[in-house]
Design a protein around this nucleic acid. Structure first.
Length: 458
RNA sequence: GGCGACAUCGCCAAGUGGUAAGGCAAUGGUCUGCAAAAUCAUUAUCCCCAGUUCGAAUCUGGGUGUCGCCUCCA
């Protein structure tokens, strides 16, 4: 298994700390709003990482934090005229709902920032004691110049940051790149008591505290979107290493952005679609296919036409499951031929090469192609086995069922019968009318050599 | 100003030194009363220039273009 490590900018052989186990931490949402389809890329990708490791037989511990106290939540609470707590709960619920709809498997731990305030204060205290942090009038800052390795993840040095800095001048900070560990509360804001007075923790602290509390001082993989490399992950590393002297994670993985018309999709540019809205129109599997059709580190451009194409591609997978009536043979033990084992190996090699999902997917299409030539149901088993390793085929029964209820289905069958009678009588006008009228109701008739079939077109 | 990514058929996209995977679309054939569906087949020398090499989409140098990070952001 090779993983591209942002820290070294190289693909490295993955070696877990503990044999057979993978400890993964990926940055989760700040729950002040619905997440958009660009955010979904990270959530979905790390779901694939998790599933694939499990497929390989690793025991996963996957932790994803939830930031439930932060400036944006406070603002949102004002906007919605409610409390921070209520805002958090509302969007946590939405987050869990939407990720589930996307077919993302529940992570093992979802720590919330507000549940770890005590531990965060302890960390900050330690940093202050060791001279890596300083307090100014109720605020506490991390001092980047006192941490010699600052910038090693993102490849920056402190002086460069100074030059082009768009960082706002903050008279309190000793260096413009110093970041907030503890933020003094304004009146009315939610706050916790601390040695520096009432306030709340800075964002960069929670991930360090929560990841280490659950996964230990050093864990295997830390992941997130590209935009978190600097400053977020850089700041995590600074705090972690300044306090323990040990690396926080051995591998740093970052996914590329989702662009829209060539520009990054982001809330601040206001060019986003929420995952929630996209899911109303398109299937979760089509969205998954769309993301996996490109390598995770590359930027990917979003538009609805591509999602529609992706839906068609996914339908291609299901068409062979339909042909073999997969639900009936699902429990038969597969018997793979040498050719099939070779395909499986090809798939695994692609995935083992830093999660080359695009290449892996092409193997799935090869399987489909070979199935069509041979009609060997073992190809269907192989397709499902490999597809599942990256999160496809989570609900085959639902997908194959055209469950309209018995009465409706009988009515459709009846109309087909009438049409066939008209056809026998060469009454093409009536036969075509039935076909076209059903088409208008999204019921598509398919004449095959073995009779007339129908399906619902979306 | 600093740091970084990317440029492959109409669209999407693999390939990281050995002679261009795959998907969608398109076109043609088979099937059909006609269609649709299904099925078979066909479709690129890789942004530009120079270099290294027996050999480059793949390496080096120089352009051009697009995007990102340096402020909250997946």
């Amino acid at each position: 298994m090779k993983i591209y490590n942002t820290m070294t900018r190289k693909k490295e052989n993955f070696k877990p700390i503990e044999e057979g186990k993978v400890k993964l931490y990926a940055c989760g949402p700040t729950v002040y709003n619905y997440f958009h389809i660009g955010n979904a890329r990270a959530f979905l990708f790390f779901d694939v990482v998790r599933r694939y490791f499990e497929f390989l037989g690793y025991e996963m511990t996957y932790v994803q934090n939830i930031t439930d106290i932060e400036d944006k939540l406070i603002n949102q609470a004002k906007a919605e005229q409610t409390t921070v707590k209520k805002v958090a709960q509302k969007y946590i619920d939405a987050f869990l709902e939407d990720t589930a709809s996307l077919g993302i498997k529940k992570v093992n731990h979802h720590p919330k920032a507000t549940e770890y305030i005590g531990e965060m204060i302890d960390l900050i205290k330690k940093l202050v004691e060791n001279n890596f942090a300083y307090e100014v009038d109720g605020d506490v800052y991390f001092s980047v110049v006192n941490f010699k390795n600052y910038g090693k993840l993102s490849g920056r040095n402190i002086d460069d940051l100074k030059v082009g800095a768009r960082v706002k001048a903050n008279v309190q900070k000793r260096h413009p790149a110093d970041f907030t560990l503890w933020k003094k509360a304004k009146p009315e804001e939610p706050s916790w008591g601390s040695p520096w007075g009432k306030g709340r923790p800075g964002w960069h602290t929670e991930c360090v505290v929560m990841s280490r509390s659950i996964l230990g001082e050093t864990f295997d993989i830390h992941g997130g979107g590209n935009d978190l490399i600097f400053p977020h992950h850089e700041n995590e590393i600074a705090q972690a290493e300044a306090s323990s002297g040990k690396p926080l994670a051995n591998y740093w993985m970052h996914n590329g952005y989702l662009n829209i018309e060539g520009e990054k999709m982001s809330k601040s540019l206001n060019n986003f679609f929420t995952a929630r809205d996209i899911l109303k129109k398109y299937d979760a599997e089509a969205i998954r296919f769309f993301f996996l059709s490109k390598h995770y580190r590359s930027p990917i451009d979003f538009n609805e036409d591509i999602i529609i194409e992706s839906s068609k591609a996914v339908e291609g997978f299901y068409s062979i499951l339909k042909t073999v009536n997969f639900l009936k043979i699902e429990n038969n033990a597969p018997n793979y031929s040498a050719e099939m084992l070779q395909l499986k190996e090809k798939f695994i090699n692609a995935m083992n090469d830093d999660f080359n999902t695009a290449k892996a997917i092409s193997v799935l299409f090869e399987i489909v192609k070979l199935f069509k030539k041979s009609n060997d149901e073992n190809f269907a088993h192989l397709l499902v086995e490999l597809g599942k390793s990256v999160g496809f085929f989570q609900n085959i029964a639902d997908h194959l069922a055209e469950d309209l209820g018995e009465i409706t289905e009988n009515l459709i069958e009846l109309l087909i019968e009438y049409r066939n009678t008209f056809k026998k009588e060469k009454n093409w006008e009536m036969a075509d009318k039935i076909r076209n009228d059903l088409q208008k109701l999204n019921i598509q008739l398919k004449d095959t050599s073995s009779g007339t079939d129908w399906s619902i077109s979306k």
